[in-house]
Structures are given as structure tokens and as C-alpha cells.
Design a binder for these strands. Structure first.
Lengths: 206, 206
DNA sequence: TGACGGCCTGAACACTGTTCCGTATGATAA
DNA sequence: TTATCATACGGAACAGTGTTCAGGCCGTCA
């Protein structure tokens, strides 16, 4: 036999080429600038072919983001299970999260800055939609905070509330720097981020 | 004469009707769901007529947001010049900002959550684009913080950095609650907001 | 009455995501 | 070798979008 295997391999290969082409457009020009026709042109197939591999544009982009977000979650988990102090762990996690957003602005934007109703009927096979990706990253972040709760250095009563609060705070810097990178007269970026981390950790200390 | 006056009045009236119709669609369905054709249908004019009154869709929406944001700035200014303590002023300002965002999600979203490059060539007559609206609100917020700097209760070295940091923090809650109102398992909204304000103020105290 | 000028429209352009139907290819079965 | 059949794919079309532009209507003024 081997023929069905080869077919499957070829199919998988085209699928990868679609993702690859779409990713390149997506990373450099953002979600709205990516069109099915441009992707098709890039891979030298017709637009309708893409629909044999992905349900729709949202589905395609979700798969693109999934891969990238897995890296973030992995990085956060690595930090959490490192030998650092609870305080250092948390700070590293927050910093890694922000850096991830700033280095992958389009991935971050599409996941956290596009209203959920716009993803309304993204294929449910992607398990609950694109947020799931972000929510997993949030879980890792909460793990970092749980470590802090056990440390006497901190005073954290409600981990869940605190974790959500910290998340919204770092999302604030990240998303605003992505959305308004130049039009707003920001102070030096590094200073803004580090000051934010200082204050967040400070507000959590006993 | 009076005829040119009447004409001008009628022109202004149609302009208002356009804004009114667009606002209704915008508030209930958001930016992308508003189409020039639907607005035109609502006011019983042709789509091209709208372009005699507004340069393009972005220009129209900017004018819609301008009106609403003026209210926010006014509210913040009122708080800043009230007789409250510096601490209360700041807290009230932050709370007002968040509430404004949650009560006008589409206005807020379009101003702060749409990447600046998407507004690239919005009519420059709207003085630097739609951010200007938000930046003015930020100014008021910074005024609230300056009041705190003079109070011995607080320890604020760099007002500009601190103001920007506080802004990103409250933008974080506001925008995430707008973007993911239901898909994420939030703790009780009021609890999240108040806890955030507690921590922000706490991190600023001497 | 005729000309001017402002207001408005219909049609078109260039896009978008998406669907559907016909076709061609190539592997399998007779 | 021939016939069958599923699968992969492409072209054209549909229903939208923002935007532009030539032309027509109509009131005002000379």
C-alpha cells in the first residue's frame, strides 16, 4: 500500500504550506490585511482550496495563534517550575508575558483584543475558540501567583481575584503599547514596563 | 435673504441625522457592523451623500466618539476640581474611567483597541486622529495624579511615568472586560474592579 | 428665460469571505 | 486493459464592504 499514507502526507504538507503562507502575511500585516486570495496566490492554489483544509479564515488564524501561544505557555511553565524564589518567578512570568505580546503583536492582538462576538462561530473543534489559548497562558500565570501565596513575603488572600487583576494589569501595558505604539507620547518603554512590575509586586507584598 | 442661512441650517440638520443614525447602529452593533449603506438606508439617502458630510467612515466614527469622550473628560475634570481629598479624587477618576468604558464599550474599543495604523489616513482636521480624544482624557487623569503628588500620603516621583502606568492598568481591566465579557470565567466584576483600585492606590502610597 | 451652482444619486470599481458545481486526476476493481 | 469512483481542485458566482465619479435635478439669481 503506502499510497494512502503518501496522500495523507501530501495533504499535511499543503496544509503546512497554507499555514506558513498565512503566517507570513499575518505576522507582517495583521489579520485584516490577510486575505484568502492573497494566501492562495502565495501558495499558487485557488482560494477555495484553502476551505478544504480550514473551515474559514478565523479557523486558520486560530491555528496560527495556537502554535505561538503554546510557546508562551511552555515558557511560563518553565519559569514556574524553576528554582527561583517565588517573587522572582512571578516577576519573570509577568515580564515574559509582556515581552511575548510585544514580540508577537498580531498574535496577541487577535487573541485578546478582538471582541469575542466577532469569533462567534469559529469551529468549536478548536475547543472553545481562540481564547482557550490565552486562558491556558493565564493558568500558568496563576500558578506563579500560587507559589507567591505560600511565601510569607506576600499577602494574597484570594488567588483567583488577584490573578485576574494582575493579568488585566499586564494586559493593559501590553495591549496599549501594541495599539498605540507611536501616536501616544510614551515615556521610555523599558521604564514604563519595569515601573509597572515594581508597583504590581509592591502592591502584593505583605 | 435668510436663504443661505436656511440652507446652512438644513445642511447641519442632515449632518446631525447622519451622526444620529450612525450612532444608533454603532452603539448597538459596533464599528464593523455599521455600513455606509445601512446608515444611508436609515436616513433615506444614498450612500454617496454621506461622503458630502464626512470624509470617510473613520471620520464619521471619530466625530461620534468625540462627543462621547468630551463627556468623560468633563466628568474627570469635575472630579479633579472637586473638594475631595487627593486620594478620593484619584480613586473616583479611575472608577469613572472604567465605568465609562464599560458603559460605552464600542466608543472605548474604537478609540483605544483599534491599532493606530488602521486609522492611518483619517482626516487630519480631526486634530491628530481619534487618539486625541483618549489623550485628553489621559491628561485629566494625570491632573488627578498631580494632586496626589502634592499630598504627603503618597510617594510619587515621576508623575508622567506613574500616570501612564496607572492608565495602562485601568485600561487593562476595562478593555479585557469589553473584549471577553463572557467567555472568560471572571470573578464578580465589581470585586475585580474594586480590588484593582485598592492595589493601584496601595502601590502609590508612601 | 437662461445660466449658474449646490445637492444628490446610480452605477461602477476594487476589494472582501464564502459556496457550489463541474472537472480532471489517479487509484482501485472487474 | 478498461471502467468506476472518490478525492482534490479551480472558476465563477453571491452577497457583502468602502469609496469614487459622471451626470441630473432643482432652486436661485441675472
Amino acid at each position: 500500500m503506502g499510497v494512502t499514507e503518501r496522500r495523507a502526507r501530501e495533504k499535511e504538507e499543503l496544509r503546512s504550506r497554507i499555514i506558513e503562507a498565512a503566517t507570513e502575511l499575518f505576522v507582517h500585516e495583521g489579520y485584516t490585511s490577510v486575505s484568502m486570495r492573497r494566501i492562495a496566490e502565495k501558495i499558487e492554489y485557488s482560494p477555495s482550496t484553502i476551505y478544504l483544509y480550514f473551515k474559514d479564515k478565523a479557523d486558520l488564524v486560530t491555528h496560527i495563534c495556537a502554535e505561538t501561544f503554546r510557546k508562551l505557555t511552555a515558557a511560563l511553565d518553565a519559569i514556574v517550575s524553576s528554582g527561583e524564589s517565588a517573587s522572582n518567578k512571578l516577576r519573570s512570568c509577568l515580564r515574559a508575558y509582556i515581552d511575548f505580546g510585544l514580540q508577537n503583536p498580531n498574535h496577541y492582538y487577535v487573541t485578546f483584543c478582538v471582541p469575542e462576538y466577532q469569533w462567534k462561530d469559529v469551529s468549536p473543534e478548536t475547543e472553545g475558540g481562540i481564547y482557550q489559548l490565552g486562558i491556558q497562558a493565564f493558568q500558568s500565570l496563576r500558578d506563579g501567583l500560587t507559589a507567591c501565596q505560600r511565601s510569607p513575603e506576600f499577602r494574597i488572600e484570594d488567588v483567583e481575584t488577584t490573578a485576574q487583576m494582575v493579568w488585566t494589569m499586564i494586559h493593559g501595558v501590553t495591549s496599549l503599547l501594541i495599539t498605540l505604539p507611536t501616536q501616544f507620547p510614551w515615556v521610555e518603554r523599558e521604564r514604563l514596563i519595569e515601573t509597572s512590575l515594581d508597583h504590581i509586586l509592591r502592591s502584593l507584598r505583605a
